[in-house]
């Protein structure tokens, strides 16, 4: 019962997100706005909501399954895009290398040193 009640809350925040997106004409998905509204509401509230926690944990565990039908599509459209293999390779392999390098460099400069842990300086 709690799970269903929690689900109703999630649907409520999703619909609220949709209302905000539609009224303001935002180029953002309703789910993301709904997520931010939920986080904001929990912050105002100051503590976790048990019914929402009860549905969120299993739903997040199942995310991989909810996404999987989309992955199936790759194998059926790959042929249509085969001429762009170089663009895909560059963006995904080299692009990820560069962005990982950027993140590590930025973070190691900005992050305060961890207490009681010896580390070599760069």
């Amino acid at each position: 019962m709690n799970v269903i009640k929690g689900f109703l809350y999630l649907l409520g925040f999703l619909l609220l997100g949709d209302v905000v997106v539609t009224l303001l004409g935002l180029p953002i998905s309703a789910g993301v706005i709904g997520m931010l509204l939920l986080t904001g509401w929990l912050l105002v509230r100051g503590r976790m909501h048990d019914d929402i926690a009860a549905i969120s944990q299993p739903l997040i565990t199942l995310l991989a399954m909810l996404i999987m039908p989309g992955v199936v599509g790759v194998f059926f459209v790959l042929g249509d895009y085969s001429q762009y293999w170089l663009a895909a390779l560059l963006a995904l392999v080299l692009g990820t290398l560069l962005s990982v390098l950027t993140t590590l460099w930025l973070m190691s400069r900005m992050m305060p040193r961890q207490p009681k842990q010896d580390q070599a300086d760069e």
């Binding site: 689900f7 999630l10 925040f13 998905s29 709904g34 997520m35 986080t39 969120s56 909810l66």
Partner: peptide
Amino acid sequence: YVQYQEGARWIILLLGPATVALGVPLF
């Protein structure tokens, strides 16, 4: 594949509330 995707839409539909649920770990 199109027939399968048609039916799988019902599963993908749950992505909306699941995205909202990500607000819980964020909090």
